[in-house]
Amino acid sequence: MDKKLFENLDEQMNMEYESAYIYKAMAAYAAEEDWTGSEHWFNEQAREEIMHAEKFRNFLHDKGFKISFKGMQAAKTDYKSLLEAFQAALEHEQLITNNIKKLYKEAVEKEDYEVQVFLNWFIEEQVEEEANVGSVVARLEKIGDSTNGLFMMDKALGKRED
């Protein structure tokens, strides 16, 4: 594997761990505001992001590369509303999607077929990630400041199982 491609995959692994950290901070915000369903949703998302990071870690390890764990910046925990938190989540997922696409392009340019196959799963996963968060944002935008609507939405978010 090309050294630069490895470094970029290692960086993405760290970004996936950081994604979990960001979602845990969003869960903390939701907990402080007594949005227990949203807290659950964000915690489930954090768990999923750790799984993504572990996929990168395992792949790099299996390829014989020594991985690095980099420090993280403090994550934001103060939002004006659930909508703002979920909008930030959507923006973050879009950032991750763009990074995965760049990695895939680099793997194509380097003719690294193993990395391309590995990244295919993430490309498909990011479509789902953006759709899920985008759906929550769209519903929260429709709800607006409706207290009843927000409580119903929060209850629905608490039923997330994956």
Rank of each mutant, 00 (worst) to 15 (best):
M51H: 13
A131Y: 06
F122H: 01
Y79C: 03
M72N: 10
K80E: 15
E130K: 02
E91W: 05
L119D: 00
L119G: 02
Q87A: 10
F56W: 05
D78F: 10
N132W: 09
H92C: 05
N58T: 09
I96M: 12
K70I: 14
H61M: 05
H92Q: 14
K76C: 11
G64K: 09
K105T: 15
F69C: 07
A88C: 10
Y79H: 08
A75H: 03
A85R: 01
F86D: 02
K55T: 01
K55F: 05
A89K: 05
K101H: 12
F122Q: 00
A89T: 04
A74S: 14
E106K: 12
T77M: 14
R57G: 13
W121N: 07
H61N: 14
H61C: 07
L82P: 13
Q116Y: 07
Q94I: 14
K80N: 15
K76D: 06
A75Q: 06
A89G: 05
N132Y: 09
E111R: 07
L95Q: 14
Q87E: 14
E106F: 14
E106V: 12
E54N: 06
F59I: 09
E129P: 00
N120G: 03
G64H: 05
F69L: 12
M51N: 11
K102L: 11
E111G: 00
A107R: 02
S135R: 06
N98Y: 08
F56E: 02
F65Y: 09
V127I: 15
A75S: 07
A107E: 05
N99I: 12
F59E: 00
Q116S: 09
K110I: 13
H52E: 01
K101G: 09
T97K: 00
F69G: 04
G71T: 02
E109P: 00
A89F: 06
Y104K: 01
L95F: 15
M51E: 13
